[in-house]
């Protein structure tokens, strides 16, 4: 393992902040993609009686996966900010199921990275959401 590699560094960082609250962990990755997941928690519910899951954790997981996919592609540790994010909710997430988000970074310019993301709750063939997000590199290079 290359000690200097930014993606390896990212993968091995202990969870902190909101990643730690949601329990986000790495599942798999490739040259331009990353899959992250988080286990279901009762705090994700909108309505405990109806078993209705909030879409908020899905957005946060997409944001995290998209950022990871960019680092998987660039292999650089560049500070970046989310510019925009669009999410389509295809069907409700099921209570008790882990959320998985697989993001691809499909294009990069000098200052901007573009990503797409699919989210499922156990069956990749039955996605619960799809999203696109773009990010701006805030460094000066």
């Amino acid at each position: 393992m290359d000690e200097e590699d930014a993606f390896e560094r990212l993968k091995n960082l202990p969870p902190r902040g909101h990643h730690a609250l949601l329990g986000i962990y790495n599942v798999d990755h490739g040259p331009d993609w990353a899959e992250l997941a988080c286990p279901f928690a009762p705090g994700f519910l909108m309505d405990a009686d109806a078993g209705l899951v909030s879409s908020g954790p899905i957005i946060s997981l997409v944001d995290a996966a998209a950022g990871s996919a960019i680092i998987a592609r660039t292999r650089q540790w560049r500070p970046m900010a989310t510019l925009d994010l669009h999410i389509d909710y295809l069907r409700p997430a099921r209570a008790g199921h882990s959320l998985h988000a697989r993001a691809h970074c499909h294009h990069i310019t000098r200052k901007v990275a573009f990503t797409r993301c699919d989210v499922h709750d156990g069956d990749p063939q039955a996605p619960i959401a799809t999203a696109t997000a773009s990010f701006f590199f805030t460094d000066e290079s």
């Binding site: 902040g17 908020g56 954790p57």
Partner: peptide, 25 residues
């Protein structure tokens, strides 16, 4: 709160988005 932080010193983007979504709901 520390549990809402993204990169050091900043709120997590997904949390800001969630707050907007909850306001709409």
């Amino acid at each position: 709160a520390a549990s809402l932080e993204g990169r050091s010193g900043f709120l997590y983007g997904g949390v800001i988005a969630s707050l907007l979504e909850l306001a709409c709901l």
